[in-house]
Design a binder for these strands. Structure first.
Length: 750
DNA sequence: CGCCGTACGGTTTTT
DNA sequence: CCGTACGGCG
């Protein structure tokens, strides 16, 4: 019996249908978490609770992936309840579970156990090479577009051969050619890209009966979270796991599908109903997160989509505060507004910084915010952005480690062979590569051949390598260094290996030579941070530590770097893209840059389907807020050097005026637009009846006032701030001095 | 042959 | 604005 559950919040709160859904889980469990599913953490809690209270047992942990925070938490929670030796539990993202299984079964399926996982930039390097070898006119067909087409094919389990047969136009033919070549290169490099992890795992289960039975027996139940963002291959994998014991539960909300550009396919939901006709669908329309105002506003936005099934969420949480709309002059002023608002809410409402999140469409928008928050001395944590593992110095060191683990990795080889500068340039490398290709060996192996030739008494003239004398010497030294480090890796823990790499390469000196004192220091600290992470793998046996470390680093997700907002000590405002925010929640959310061209993004203007996805993205952002939601925009914004005026986002305008408390720094021409509030919901109108802030100062110095929370006080001063008034009041007792904005503070004259 | 300077182009979202 | 491509110099 399968169970299909759609809509928000399956487990949180455990209402009756949710309880029913979860209690069908009665044995070994495999959880496949979709991208960025912070909600999985809640599920983890609930499962632990069920184990504890309902006594679903006995389970045993076979393997748990550590790459995401939810998995880690799941493990510690569940481990506390479980006996060491009963059933099997596996929790992780699709990618991390596949990586783990492929590594475990590598020998059986003829896969090199020390395969490296190639990320986006590694893929691009390979793609450039693949295009070069296939003589592709990359002016006409962009490598990025070809890679994207290949990635899409893989996500639908379309092989190069099948793709070639289906190619209808010239672009298709080019892609087919490059696809085949690209796959060959991956094999040569002993690498799997992100898509391969899924594809190879599916193939493994399809083609190897022994492996298939093993896992189908092991996992009696399969649960997929964030199902709306899975692709065809991932769904296929889930089905394979659940083929023997068809206990499969998927959780997803079609309105939150925001990864179609990454080949997530909403057809999965339809297919699920077709593939499991006995499945029970449970619609969960009670929301346990947001206030009714927030839900109504979000509903008004998402209702603008044509392609959707209507559902309306409700909550017992009450109306809550109105949504604050604010128009700033430019992005600096916008950021200041956010910083000030946070500061005053922290003061006035005793909020912790960790209760706030600021969300934006693109990573670039975090810049102005960071500056403003630093000025305002507001602690913040940036999620994603220039991600830690994408920093140059970190990638360099990882490049060495990857080459040590897998010398066939030509991408890593090319990255580190001249870092620090050893006098090995493009010319030498291309010569070496050409020579290696003639021999059908990877570049690093070719280097070993060069070394052998050099040490031979009478080198063969015909096979003679084409490398100059000086470069040859350097390259052989490099090759020997890596060989020695491989030896270190086999016998020592991660910290020792990393220190060995740093020492042998003289990387610290290199950093300080290349950069200014302060920047060098900063980058060296990043290496220190990397070393800290690596040290967590010291407990693993030599060799295994390196494999696990590199795998985890490759598969770490933005959500894993999210500050834990359950932890009151963390005390930081979260800055995060709308995409990364999926599955998370915060009491107070600011959505900034709510402008046409940003959200919705300009690149979605000419495509209806993409526009609908932008709308869903907006919906996702709005529904992250539990208590207060701010929709903020700027009249003027600097893009890349030049500034532009963007009209307010169309999504912004979809929010009924009755739900909004409007605040503005500038009187722009847009203020006049669509002012007339269409009465959205009975009983909400009175909110808008709040009188506008008057021109004259309402409070004078010396006046006695009362505030519902702070009690009685005396007005010290009051002044006009933009089109609001700021009143400074000395309250009695411990409360002391407060600065209050008139439009917000319910101040009463005594 | 490699390194460093300047011009230019492209510019969402991420496992 | 940032990273890459190309051209001249050591």
């Amino acid at each position: 019996m399968g169970v299909l559950v759609t809509a928000e919040h399956i487990i949180e709160g455990l209402n009756p249908p949710q309880r029913e859904a979860v209690t069908t889980i009665a044995g070994p469990l495999l959880i496949l978490a979709g991208p960025g599913s912070g909600k999985t953490r809640v599920i983890a809690h609930r499962i632990a609770y069920l184990v504890d209270v309902i006594g679903v047992a006995p389970w045993r942990i076979l393997s748990v992936t550590f790459t995401n925070k939810a998995a880690k938490e799941m493990r510690s929670r569940v481990a506390a309840h479980l006996e060491e030796a009963a059933a099997d539990l596996m929790l992780g993202t699709f990618h991390s579970i596949c990586a783990r299984l492929l590594r475990t079964e590598a020998d059986r399926i003829g896969l090199n156990r020390s395969f490296n996982i190639f990320d986006d930039s590694d893929q691009m390097s390979l793609m450039k090479r693949a295009c070069e070898y296939s003589n592709v006119d990359t002016k006409r067909f962009k490598e990025r577009a070809i890679l994207s087409a290949i990635s899409h094919a893989k996500s639908e389990l379309v092989s190069p051969e099948t793709y070639a047969r289906g190619a209808r136009d010239y672009f298709g033919e080019v892609v087919a050619r490059v696809y085949a070549r690209y796959q060959e290169l991956l094999v040569e490099n002993g690498a799997l890209d992100f898509d391969d992890l899924i594809v190879r795992a599916v193939e493994m289960l399809q083609n190897n009966a022994e492996v298939r039975e093993k896992y189908q027996e092991r996992f009696l139940h399969v649960l997929v979270d964030e199902f709306q963002d899975t692709n065809i291959a991932q769904y296929q994998l889930a089905r394979l796991f659940a083929a023997k014991h068809p206990n499969i539960c998927v959780v997803g909300d079609p309105d939150q599908s925001i990864y179609s550009w990454r080949s997530a396919d909403i057809r999965n939901i339809l297919n699920f109903e077709r593939d499991y006709p006995d499945a029970k669908t449970v619609l969960l329309e009670q929301n346990y997160r947001s206030t009714q105002n927030i839900l109504d506003a979000a509903h008004a936005v998402i209702s603008g989509n044509k392609q959707r099934k209507e559902k309306s969420l409700w909550t017992s949480a009450g109306e809550g505060e109105p949504i604050v709309a604010y128009e700033a002059y430019d992005e600096a002023e916008e950021a200041d507004f956010v910083a000030n608002e946070i500061t005053s809410l922290v003061e006035d409402e005793r909020r912790s910084y960790s209760e706030f999140a600021v969300m934006y469409r693109t990573n670039a928008h975090s810049r102005a915010l960071e500056e403003a928050l630093i000025r305002a001395k507001v602690p913040y944590a940036l999620v994603g952005g220039t991600r830690f593992y994408e920093r140059r110095e970190v990638k360099d060191i990882l490049g060495y480690l990857r080459l040590i683990q897998n010398p066939h990795d030509a991408v890593s080889f090319a990255r580190v062979v001249n870092v620090p500068g050893r006098g090995i340039g493009a010319k030498t490398l291309s010569e070496l590569e050409r020579w290696a290709r003639e021999r059908g060996v990877p570049a690093f192996t070719a280097l070993q051949l060069v070394a052998e030739q050099e040490s031979a008494v009478r080198p063969s003239v015909v096979e003679r390598h084409p490398i100059g004398a000086k470069q040859t010497k350097t390259l052989i030294e490099f090759q020997q260094m890596i060989a020695e480090l491989q030896d270190v890796a086999e016998k020592n823990n991660m910290t020792t290996l990393l220190d060995g790499v740093l020492e042998r390469t003289g990387y610290r000196k290199h950093l300080f030579a290349e950069f200014e004192e302060s920047e060098g220091e900063e980058r060296w600290e990043n290496i220190g941070e990397l070393r800290n992470v690596a040290s967590e793998y010291d407990g693993l046996s030599a060799g295994h530590g390196l494999v696990a470390f590199l795998e985890d680093v490759a598969l770490i997700s933005d959500a894993d770097t999210t500050p834990d907002n359950d932890d009151p000590g963390s005390g930081r405002v979260t800055l995060i893209t709308l995409h990364s925010a999926k599955g998370l929640e915060y009491p107070i959310v600011f959505m900034i840059a709510m402008e046409e061209g940003v959200l919705p993004h300009i690149r979605s203007f000419d495509d209806q389907a993409q526009m609908e996805e932008e709308r869903r993205l907006c919906y996702v952002g709005m529904t992250r807020a539990k208590q207060r939601l701010y929709l903020v925009r700027a009249f003027k914004r600097y893009n890349m050097g030049s500034s532009s005026h963007n009209p307010p986002s169309r999504f912004f305008k979809d929010v009924p005026q009755v739900l909004i408390s409007q605040r503005s720094a500038v009187r722009s021409q847009y203020e006049a637009v669509e002012r007339g509030p269409s009465r959205y919901r009975e009983g909400l109108a009175r909110k808008d009846d709040r009188p506008p802030v008057p021109e004259e100062l309402v409070f004078a110095g010396g006046e006695r006032v009362r505030h519902p929370r702070f009690g009685e006080g005396i007005v010290v001063s009051s002044q006009k701030v933009k089109d609001d008034q700021e009143v400074s009041v000395a309250f009695k007792g411990e409360v002391g001095m407060k600065k209050l904005m008139l439009s917000f503070a319910p101040l009463e004259k005594l």
